[in-house]
């Protein structure tokens, strides 16, 4: 029993010292894991990354093993996906926040958004393959991959836009409506600009997911890695870009998977370096955005 007659007696708590060290241990483990993983990928892959690695396409004839084609494909898919997903996602969020009255429909939309965000990417891949690939006849193409991914990142964009819309003070809405502005005018001129940072956050997060995704693309966009040929003149370029969208194309992550499957670890680690570099940039962008927002508030 502890002596309670005097306050001048610090109790010893061995169990607590243990718990405290467990807390610190766990935290440092997370850091070490990350640092170890990132460090290892760079250590193994940095030597592979070179200018020609980044700009040439893999070709047996020219004896190149670059990932230029995959880089272009990744960009293609990211842009196409966001073009498809952002308007719909933002629109859905605006409807939920500004038009819908709380009730069954809103709850249904929120439940389905939740469900959609929990569906594993393999399932998106299966669905994309049969729906975009077979039913719509897009086959293995960048377009099919992008459509599939746009469904996958939709919840992310809806959720971030909703968050952003919620932080816009009601007084802005009232002010604009009070001046006689129509609701749509108010949304266009007041709401969306104020919510823009949140929408951009959603967009960047979605870009991160797209870049890292592989399971949903394997059976939709396939694994082509050809570099697009420059077109002659503007209309020809556009035509070629459009044709390219209908060709199969593997993103960096898909290419990494295929290289790894074939035991070519050197190339795989090289791609890993590039991917981690992109992820780092995305995190930096988000951080900068958050800081700027923080300063504004």
């Amino acid at each position: 029993m502890v002596d309670e007659t005097t306050l001048y007696h610090k109790r010893k708590r061995p169990a607590e010292a243990f718990l405290l060290s467990a807390v610190y241990g766990a935290a440092s483990m997370s850091v070490i894991l990350l640092a170890g993983m990132v460090g290892y990928v760079f250590f193994k892959g940095a030597g592979t990354v070179s200018w020609s690695f980044l700009t040439t396409a893999a070709s047996v004839l020219q004896k190149t093993s670059g990932i230029g084609g995959n880089l272009v494909n990744t960009l293609y898919i990211a842009v196409l996906t966001l073009l498809a997903a952002v308007p719909v996602g933002v629109g859905a969020a605006v409807y939920l926040n500004e038009y819908a009255k709380p009730g069954k429909l809103v709850r249904l939309v929120e439940f389905t958004t939740e469900t959609l965000s929990g569906i594993p990417s393999v399932i998106f891949g299966l669905f994309g393959m049969v729906f975009f690939g077979e039913t719509l006849g897009l086959g293995y193409s960048l377009l099919a991959g992008a459509f599939t991914l746009s469904l996958m990142v939709l919840p992310l964009i809806v959720r971030n836009t909703q968050e952003a819309l919620r932080t816009v003070p009601d007084s802005y809405r009232m002010g604009a409506l009070g001046l006689g502005a129509s609701r749509f005018y108010m949304i266009r001129t007041i709401l969306l600009p104020s919510a823009m940072p949140g929408i951009l956050t959603g967009l960047i997060l979605a870009a991160g997911r797209i870049v890292g995704e592989s399971a949903a693309l394997l059976f939709t966009a396939g694994s082509g890695s050809r570099l697009p040929k420059p077109g002659a003149g503007a209309s020809d370029t556009i035509r070629r870009l459009w044709e390219k969208a209908h060709e199969s194309g593997g993103t960096l992550a898909v290419e990494l998977y295929l290289q790894m499957q074939n035991g070519r670890y050197e190339t795989a680690f090289g791609i890993g370096c590039v991917l981690i570099g992109i992820v780092l940039c995305i995190n930096l962008l988000l951080k900068l955005g958050a800081d700027r927002l923080g300063n504004k508030a």
Binding site: A27, S28, S30, V31, L33, L34, A35, M37, V38, Y40, V41, K44, G208, V211, G212, E213, S214, A215, A253, L256, Y257, M260, Y265, A268, F269, G272, L275, I276, V279, L280, I282, N283, K287
Partner: peptide, 27 residues
């Protein structure tokens, strides 16, 4: 210390799953 751990966790969340796979088989 928290200012070191937090970004590490955020980065961990962003690493593509294929890279986990790559580290898994090679390490």
């Amino acid at each position: 210390l928290a200012a070191v751990v937090k970004p590490a966790v955020e980065l961990l969340a962003g690493i593509p799953s294929v890279i986990y796979g790559l580290l898994g088989i090679s390490l």
